[in-house]
């Protein structure tokens, strides 16, 4: 098998998916294509739940879904395993590495030694590739890193068995069989990814998911200053900005990444409409950036009045409308 090539990407799961598939000869796959085929874009605000004492908001689909869906759409057979016993998990990993297989691993970042302390929260849905072993160090391709890195047996075991929400339980996954992928299959995978994303953004019942979820958050924001006080309200806004803009998102809450996908899809599907909707999605991303700036004015203490919170909320209402329009137009396209 050929030498493994490290790719840096915006988002870790896209990166692992893309790099593992490319390693298996799927040379056309890019990060935006993996993201789009996996219907990666999403929005959800889970009520009554807190993450690091702030609102539980996500701009992307659930962890693991992108790899699973993209591989399935391309008829790639996948092996995945979770473990109770860390030693057993390490034995299995060693076996695969000895066979020259490159594997994806879900890890927690709290104990990840090459991450700076500022980024080490108990976040358990990070993904990286183990592509070899030298002495007692595992060679690691972490998609957010510019270069490859390495981890000792103890370090890797520790992050693979991080505890808390979404505990990885040694989760390991890799493609086992990749056939010839036809242009027709690629087109079908794109169409399916778009349809599923339309469903997720437009059709989920209730008010907390998809484009309606963005309005839900806007309503919450209007009440935060009164309910939580300016300091706590500012921290809540800070949490939204971090979920939206921190490393791993590609900027604008994954919206730019999705716009890049639509642009690539327009060429492959030979559909001008997709290129036009890509522009709308870019606009949504730009608006998310504007809202992050407005929110930062509040948690910096520069903006303190109710009208400043309302301005954030108004922007979110506008974003929801822009994204609704984009997905309604996408839903109308006949592939």
């Amino acid at each position: 098998m050929s030498e493994f090539i490290h790719h840096q990407t915006a988002h870790c799961e896209n990166g692992v998916t893309m790099s593992l598939l490319q390693h298996h000869g799927v040379d056309f796959i890019t990060e935006p294509l993996a993201f789009g085929m996996g219907s990666g874009l999403f929005y959800i605000h889970i009520p009554f739940m807190t993450v690091n004492n702030g609102p539980a908001i996500s701009f992307r689909t659930m962890p693991g879904a992108i790899f699973k869906r993209t591989c399935k759409a391309l008829d790639v057979k996948v092996e995945r395993k979770k473990f109770k016993d860390p030693k057993e998990a390490t034995r299995f990993l060693d076996e695969k590495i000895a066979q020259g297989i490159k594997v994806g691993c879900q890890v927690g970042v709290f104990h990840l030694p090459y991450f700076p302390k500022e980024y080490r929260f108990h976040f358990n849905a990070h993904n990286l590739i183990v592509f070899g072993k030298e002495g007692d160090r595992y060679l690691v391709s972490d998609p957010v890193m510019e270069i490859t890195t390495s981890l000792s047996t103890e370090e890797l075991e520790r992050v693979r068995f991080a505890k808390g929400a979404l505990a990885p339980k040694g989760h390991i996954y890799y493609p086992v069989e990749v056939g010839e992928i036809t242009q027709e299959q690629v087109r079908r995978a794109i169409a399916k990814g778009i349809k599923r994303n339309c469903r997720d953004m437009l059709k989920i019942p209730g008010s907390i998911a998809g484009v309606k979820g963005i309005v839900y958050t806007s309503k919450k924001i209007r009440g935060w200053r009164e309910k939580l006080g300016p300091r706590q309200a500012g921290l809540h806004l800070g949490q939204i900005v971090r979920m939206q803009e921190e490393i791993g998102t590609g900027g604008g809450g994954f919206r730019f990444l999705y716009a890049a996908f639509l642009e690539e899809a327009a060429v492959i599907m030979q559909n001008e409409e997709l290129a036009r909707i890509s522009e709308t999605m870019t606009k949504a991303g730009d608006l998310w950036r504007d809202s992050a700036l407005q929110m930062s004015g509040i948690y910096k203490g520069r903006l303190t009045e109710q009208k400043d919170f309302d301005a954030c909320a108004d922007l979110l209402v506008e974003i929801s409308a822009v994204e609704k329009q984009a997905f309604q137009e996408l839903a109308k396209i006949k592939f």
Binding site: V144, E245, S296
Partner: peptide, 29 residues
């Protein structure tokens, strides 16, 4: 590390660019 951002190049096409960070989110952290 620097982070990958998806951005529009001079021709209006999507491209990636590396960023050292953004003040708005640095303050949030």
């Amino acid at each position: 590390t620097r982070e990958v951002c998806y951005v529009k190049n001079e021709d209006g096409q999507y491209d990636t660019e590396l960023s050292t960070g953004w003040e708005a989110k640095k303050v949030a952290l």
